[in-house]
Design a protein around this nucleic acid. Structure first.
Lengths: 309, 309
DNA sequence: TAAATTGATGAATTAAATTCATATATGCTT
DNA sequence: AAGCATATATGAATTTAATTCATCAATTTA
């Protein structure tokens, strides 16, 4: 009894305040965590969390949280050190190319966290836009690319990061705001405000508008905040990841609606050369990206299976 | 991967130098530990132990040993603290009565170790000899008794500690030393040197000599070393636990032989009042006794099942 | 007040760990 | 160097533990 998984549970449960959200972060079900928690509490005859929403720690729980914060980083460091020992000590390189504009928001903190763990790995961002970013791998101009589709390709390994919902943005009081969700046709009257990227990379255009033969007038902006500002100023509609606009929605700057009845969900993957893809420094970067994403981005979901180290 | 059990394995394996001995200490089979070790090594693509006898740590193994020594005591302390939190904070009392003379050898270090973990528990040794030590529990003169037999009794809970072999001791060159093992008849000619205890507590007499109707002349000594000295001086035979005489055998003072073909094996148990027996401070004392015994006494075996916390 | 979300729970399922049986390796003795 | 004793490795069978599934009860939100 009292295993590392219990310490992880307590740490995540304290952060999320909910078994359901903790389950997402730990790639397990709510039921699994409930069983774990109940078993641990029963074993010591103690309550660890007050059963209210959000879940709050009891003093005994606080004690274990302190233990977790002391022990787990030490264990994680040890795992990395072991992985390093197993490698042939040739330091790795991570030149990262990013397809999606919004990604920078969470990529930066992830890179920061990673740098402290792997100071010897040289990191770089490959700037500029590229029609085929995966080609950068073969050309040896990038070592890791973040893309929105895992198109199987020889010598390239993809790893799922997470999936998220794209929301349609409109000005408050826009007539479309009366609808529960938008369809392709709803986009035909207003200009569409997007990042300056080819249609291929715009999920809304590629997967919803183009199949319906709808091609609205365009207007471009470089930054998320600029797009939101244009929408709020009734210059048109936009489609952005839910996690990128959450804060603007809360403040009431704009209104968001799902796209199509089921919602428009996109995924993100990493792509890398096959030989790099199994090295420890590389796998740990992916793990860090995910951890950071699930920690900071609201409403994202796991994408396929994932192993927690 | 990399769980606390792996750290325990590495710690014990480093101490014992052998999977077989480590398995005894951890109440598992050699096979289980071999699988654990191989799995861990395979996961990180590293060797942790050099496969020679005795098993020796590789640098990666040393790293994990250091980790184990850092982490495990912290975890063990936390377990005790949790148990303490669950109790109603009423400190426990441990008045200990011991039936067997030799037991003091390992009881003292165990009590020392325990005292550092549970400073608030008042410990005492109940001196003198008692015809029925278990009665001391009901009389409230002792809280824990170490006995050699678990005679079911109402209100008394027994816990197995370990089993060990009793060896017959004789002077070097004694004619019985030619035999591979001794039988009851072999004890009829020489005096029998024992602790000053009633026959009921002498396993050799109770289980081997008495059933055969053999009753040799007696001679008593208080201390193990005195008994060994008398045997070496050809004053008679003795029967003592293998772990109590190992060092004398190694130095060639006396010779030891098994008693009966299968060997004469005895067990040790703790006995306590039922209400005490499930309290954390009490269970942890038993765990400490066992840990100390398996750590210091050679040739002892587990007795029935046991849960490692 | 209804609807939605969340946690709890027993049973079924799946996965993991351990044992068993046995082969292979190592070290010691003669 | 051969044989013996002891230790480790390993695949398969078994057991045990953990997770999921399906649902209910409780709580919060609309």
């Amino acid at each position: 009894m009292l295993a590392l998984k219990h310490l992880r549970l307590i740490e995540v449960l304290n952060e999320t305040g909910s078994l359901t959200r903790a389950a997402t972060r730990l790639f397990l079900t709510q039921s699994a965590l409930s069983h774990q928690l109940v078993a641990l509490e029963a074993h010591y005859g103690l309550m660890l969390f007050v059963r209210a929403r959000p879940l709050r720690l009891t003093p005994a729980g606080e004690y274990l949280l302190a233990l977790a914060r002391e022990i787990l980083p030490r264990i994680d460091t040890a795992k990395r050190d072991l992985a390093r020992l197993a490698e042939d000590n040739q330091p790795g390189k991570l030149r990262i190319a990013v397809e999606c504009h919004t990604c920078y928001d969470w990529l930066m903190p992830a890179m920061d966290a990673y740098r402290t763990h792997w100071p010897e790995v040289e990191m770089d961002l490959v700037g500029g836009f590229h029609t085929d970013p995966i080609a950068l791998l073969a050309e040896d101009k990038a070592d890791l690319v973040i893309v929105s589709e895992a198109q199987p390709q020889k010598g390239v390994v993809f790893n799922p990061l997470f999936r998220y919902e794209m929301l349609a943005l409109m000005a408050t009081g826009h007539k479309l705001a009366d609808k529960a969700y938008l369809t392709a046709k709803d986009f035909s009257h207003d200009p569409l405000i997007t990042y300056p990227a080819p249609d291929r990379l715009l999920d809304l255009v590629r997967r919803v508008l183009k199949p319906s033969g709808i091609n609205p007038e365009r207007r471009h902006a470089e930054l998320t905040i600029a797009i939101v500002q244009l929408v709020a100023s009734r210059k048109g509609l936009a489609a952005l990841p839910a996690w990128a606009v959450q804060s603007y929605l809360e403040r009431g700057y704009v209104v968001a609606r799902p796209i199509t009845k089921k919602g428009l969900w996109s995924g993100l993957y990493t792509a890398a050369r096959a030989d790099d893809a199994q090295r420890a420094f590389h796998l740990d970067f992916i793990a860090t990206l995910q951890e950071q994403a699930f920690m900071t981005l609201p409403g994202i979901e796991p994408l396929l299976e994932n192993e927690y180290e």
